[in-house]
Amino acid sequence: MTGTPVPTPPTGRGTKAARPRPRWRPLAGLVLGVLAAPLLIVLPEAGLPLAYVALRLLASRFAWASRADDALRRLSGKVHAWFVALPRAGKLLLSATALLAAGAAVWRTADSLA
């Protein structure tokens, strides 16, 4: 059988025909972003990861969210590289300071609730 070959549909990253984007992602990102806003003030340990997930979901649809997500990834990569380059004593001192600050915040919150 000779003839022209049947073209295969494009696949891979960057092709819209490969896989349609779910329509629920922008809505989920908006809901998570609204939930993350007050948590960033009251409980940043829970608000920051939630805001990051909301930004990732919004980045699947909106260019501004994609640019913000790229900038956040670059910044977190720089912070990670800086932390890895610290000597062991610096890492221990920074970690102990962060733990003491978190403990003081919990202590203050528990004291104000009592």
Score class of each variant (00 low, 15 high):
Pro20Glu: 04
Arg21Asn: 03
Pro22Trp: 00
Pro22Met: 02
Pro22Cys: 02
Pro22Asn: 07
Pro22Asp: 05
Arg23Pro: 13
Arg23Cys: 05
Trp24Tyr: 12
Trp24Arg: 00
Arg25Tyr: 13
Arg25Met: 09
Pro26Asp: 08
Leu27Asn: 06
Leu27Pro: 00
Ala28Lys: 02
Ala28Gly: 14
Gly29Arg: 05
Gly29Gln: 09
Leu30Cys: 14
Val31Pro: 07
Val31Met: 07
Val31Arg: 10
Val31Glu: 08
Leu32Met: 14
Leu32Gly: 10
Gly33Met: 00
Gly33Ile: 01
Gly33His: 04
Val34Thr: 14
Val34Phe: 14
Val34Asn: 04
Val34Glu: 02
Leu35Arg: 12
Leu35Asp: 08
Leu35Lys: 07
Ala36Gln: 00
Ala36Ser: 13
Ala36His: 01
Ala37Ser: 12
Pro38Arg: 06
Leu39Gln: 10
Leu39Val: 07
Leu39Asp: 06
Leu40Lys: 08
Leu40Ala: 11
Leu40Gly: 09
Ile41Cys: 03
Ile41Ala: 10
Ile41Pro: 01
Ile41Trp: 15
Ile41Leu: 08
Val42Gln: 15
Val42Arg: 11
Val42Leu: 07
Val42Ala: 10
Val42Glu: 13
Leu43His: 05
Pro44Gln: 10
Glu45Thr: 14
Glu45Ser: 11
Glu45Pro: 04
Ala46Phe: 10
Ala46Asn: 02
Gly47Met: 04
Leu48Tyr: 04
Leu48Trp: 07
Leu48Pro: 03
Pro49Leu: 05
Pro49Cys: 06
Leu50Trp: 01
Leu50Met: 14
Ala51Glu: 03
Tyr52Gln: 05
Tyr52His: 08
Tyr52Trp: 09
Val53Gln: 06
Val53Asp: 04
Val53Leu: 15
Ala54Asp: 02
Ala54Gln: 00
Ala54Gly: 04
Ala54Met: 02
Ala54Tyr: 01
Ala54Trp: 02
Leu55Asp: 08
Leu55Tyr: 04
Arg56Phe: 08
